[in-house]
């Protein structure tokens, strides 16, 4: 059971890192990457809870593990949607950020 605190602290650090990246990075794609790091940290915390909740001989707690599997699939779906929205935004406005003050020309190239 020695791994639990180490990976628990790793999960906490990943949430911090991901949140920082999500706030500070300007490019949409980098924000999506940071969002995935944040999610990975949350999942790792679930994994630590699952390992700690395990029985002596029966392995880890299956309930949080199953939740993480569900979460991973939904996180993938959210990432796929976010990437497509970012690409479409880039296609229409030429923008690579979601900054409100940028001077990207609206109605750029919808011809692609």
């Amino acid at each position: 059971m020695s791994g639990a605190p180490i990976f628990g602290l790793t999960g906490a650090a990943l949430v911090g890192l991901g949140l920082f990246g999500l706030l500070v990075q300007a490019a949409v794609l980098r924000k999506i990457l940071a969002f995935n790091l944040l999610g990975a940290g949350v999942f790792l915390l679930f994994g630590v809870v699952a390992q700690r909740g395990g029985t002596a001989g029966g392995g880890a707690d299956a309930v949080p593990q199953a939740m993480v599997i569900t979460g991973l699939v939904v996180a993938f779906a959210a990432t796929a949607l976010a990437v497509v929205v970012a690409l479409r935004m880039h296609q229409i406005t030429g923008a690579a950020t979601i900054s409100e003050s940028d001077g990207a020309e609206p109605g750029g190239s919808d011809a692609a």
Binding site: P5, G8, L9, G11, A12, A13, V15, G16, L17, L19, F20, L23, V24, G41, L45, V48, V49, A50, R52, G53, G54, T55, G58, G59, A60, D61, A62, V63, P64
Partner: peptide, 30 residues
């Protein structure tokens, strides 16, 4: 942003270290 993210990370780290022992869970029932 660094202060906010650091505070969130630190709070989670403290929560991890303060997890109850023995840990509650549904492992045996499942």
């Amino acid at each position: 942003a660094g202060l906010l993210a650091g505070a969130v990370g630190l709070a989670l780290a403290l929560a991890v270290l303060a997890l109850p022992d023995p840990a509650p869970g549904l492992a045996a029932e499942a």
